[in-house]
């Protein structure tokens, strides 16, 4: 796993963005950027340079699931790994995210261990 990869963290709560960024930094990732919803995230992703997207689901403007669908629909971003970190935990939503092509799904509140495990799994799979 390339620790220099550029990661975009998207959440409407600034505290959660800080927490996720902090944990990612703890895991050795230093190239981190953030956005407060899908609408501000999408232009950044479209402009390119990002290797990994960590997004919340429930956000004003554009939700995480809409953002995921846009990422998958655009040829430039279609293969980007996406981890959803959200409080939404209905089965139908998890299935919807899976069908939209999410690579990992973490429910809040989460532990540092869970986040690490899911990221490891995503990149172990994409490497293999």
């Amino acid at each position: 796993m390339d620790k220099n990869m550029k990661i975009l963290v998207v959440d409407d709560f600034s505290t959660m963005r800080r927490i996720v960024k902090n944990l990612l930094r703890e895991l050795g990732f230093t190239n981190l950027d953030e956005a407060d919803d899908g609408q501000t995230a999408w232009p950044k992703l479209k402009a390119g340079g990002y290797d990994f997207l960590v997004t919340d689901w429930n956000m004003p403007g554009m939700t995480g699931i809409e953002l995921l669908k846009m990422v998958r629909a655009n040829p430039d971003t279609a293969n980007m790994p996406v981890l959803m970190v959200t409080a939404e935990q209905k089965r139908e939503q998890i299935i919807e995210a899976a069908q939209a092509g999410v690579n990992g799904y973490v429910i809040k509140p989460f532990t540092a261990g869970t986040l690490k495990e899911k990221i490891d799994k995503i990149f172990a799979r994409s490497a293999g």
Binding site: W57, A87, E88, Q89, K90, R91, I94, I95, A98, Y105
Partner: peptide, 28 residues
């Protein structure tokens, strides 16, 4: 969207833990 799980409030079709999320995803 239902948002965070709250003890004592049952949301139809919601999972209760990260393990259940993992099981559901692996079944898919």
């Amino acid at each position: 969207l239902e948002g965070p799980a709250v003890p004592g409030i049952v949301i139809d079709g919601a999972v209760n833990s990260q393990d259940e999320v993992d099981d559901l995803l692996s079944s898919l």
